[in-house]
């Protein structure tokens, strides 16, 4: 039985890899890979598959911001309750509770800086528990999801060596 962690590792590297190639790399049957993937998906361990996009190479306007949120909770309201409201917005692509100076780390994406600012001020800031927002617009991305956005070096090895 091939290892689920090893399968996850391979999918994290390239989720579009064929199950045939994955099976060969793991040294197991293709059907085994398929059933492990089905299991991981069924358990909710794998939630989906998405490309890592370098938006600077796509002819479109795309803006992302990291937004720090501070909250004030009362006895009846928990972090998860507020998170449940914020995650509903399509503009919010990531939301995490973090330790440190602020509570929520929110990634907001939109077509323009204006769109993102408006969204934060009109949709996030008015939430009663939100006491403060600090918006950091992303100016450049150099690495994301383990992939470098800078042109990597070409293979400069000799084509044949002993």
């Amino acid at each position: 039985m091939a290892d689920k962690l090893e399968l996850l590792d391979l999918l994290l590297e390239d989720a579009r890899e064929s199950t045939d190639t994955i099976a060969r790399q793991l040294g197991c049957d293709e059907s085994e890979v398929e059933s492990m993937i089905a299991e991981l998906e069924g358990d909710g361990a794998i939630l989906g598959y998405q490309p890592v996009v370098d938006w600077s190479r796509v002819e479109t306007d795309h803006v992302a911001a990291e937004v720090e949120l501070n909250l004030e909770l009362d006895r009846e309201t928990k972090y998860a309750d507020v998170a449940g409201r914020i995650t509903k917005f399509d503009e919010v692509t990531a939301l995490r509770l973090v330790s440190g100076d602020y509570d929520f780390d929110v990634t907001v994406e939109g077509d323009s800086m204006r769109d993102v600012s408006m969204f934060v001020s009109e949709q996030i800031a008015p939430i009663p528990e939100v006491t403060q927002t600090v918006t950091h617009f992303v100016m450049n991305t150099y690495k994301n999801r383990g992939l470098e956005f800078i042109d990597s070096d070409d293979d400069d090895r000799l084509s044949i060596s002993p």
Binding site: D155, R157, L158, S159, I160, S161, P162
Partner: peptide, 8 residues
Amino acid sequence: SLGVGEPD
């Protein structure tokens, strides 16, 4: 090239 004797 699969003729290379060193790591990629």
